[in-house]
Amino acid sequence: MRRTPAELVGAQPAAAYTIEFDGRELPALPGRSIAAVLWAQDILAWRTTRVGGRPRGAFCGIGVCFDCLATVNGRPNQRTCLLPARPGDVVTTQEGHGRADLAV
């Protein structure tokens, strides 16, 4: 049995809360970014590209590449690698520029 990152650093996290991702409830450990919450559930993609409709998720992990954009609480283009997950956050896969309502 391989160890986990949490075991390596002796993590004793505070109680998990839930966030919603595309209608699914996911457990979120306090302090994790939204991207980290998704990775912890083996979810690697939460955006589709504007031109090719291809799946994307976190790439640089430090807020530089903007690949990890998602719609969070109705607001598109949020860098999920920077944004801490908060109780009750509603995250949805962002399609294209995330502004379909503007019909541009």
Binding site: W39, A40, C60, I62
Partner: peptide, 13 residues
Amino acid sequence: GGAQAMLKSGLVL
């Protein structure tokens, strides 16, 4: 570096 960053801050792989 992203794998490092996500591991160091979020304890995820």
